[in-house]
């Protein structure tokens, strides 16, 4: 069973911000880290990733700056801002609450 993109949509930003907390990064690296960290359970679409970047940049959670790849190609890097870190912590709290609420209604079908 694949992951539902409807459910995860609200937390794409959180996932990306979490990875940017470690170090600044660029588009594909983030997408790869998401894939490896979730053991291929969640593969983020390029368009989803890009729209998340632009949205968060507009909201001031991340900043983009031009950088260079190993082969000398230009690449857009993203780093997290202070307001981004605050937003990330808020989202973490929100998730814990959400998870607790939903947990109450998840029944293991053992019997």
């Amino acid at each position: 069973m694949g992951i539902s993109s409807d459910v995860i949509r609200g937390y794409n930003d959180t996932i990306i911000l979490c990875l940017l907390m470690d170090e600044p990064s660029y588009g594909y690296e983030i997408s790869r880290k998401i894939r490896t960290r979730t053991a291929d359970a969640y593969i983020i679409k390029e368009t989803t990733l890009y729209s998340a970047f632009t949205r968060m940049e507009k909201n001031g959670y991340v900043e983009s700056y031009p950088g260079f790849a190993e082969n000398g190609k230009r690449r857009t890097y993203y780093r997290i801002t202070e307001s981004g870190k605050r937003y990330y912590r808020e989202k973490c709290e929100e998730w814990k609450l959400t998870k607790d609420v939903i947990e109450h209604f998840i029944r293991e079908e053992n019997s």
């Binding site: 660029y26 588009g27 594909y28 390029e46 890009y50 970047f53 190609k73």
Partner: peptide
């Protein structure tokens, strides 16, 4: 300009993924 930038970025991501 926004559209052109998006196209470049997406192209870059796809190229990275392809190369890997």
């Amino acid at each position: 300009p926004d559209v052109i930038r998006a196209k470049c970025e997406l192209g870059q991501m796809m190229e990275d993924k392809y190369n890997e």
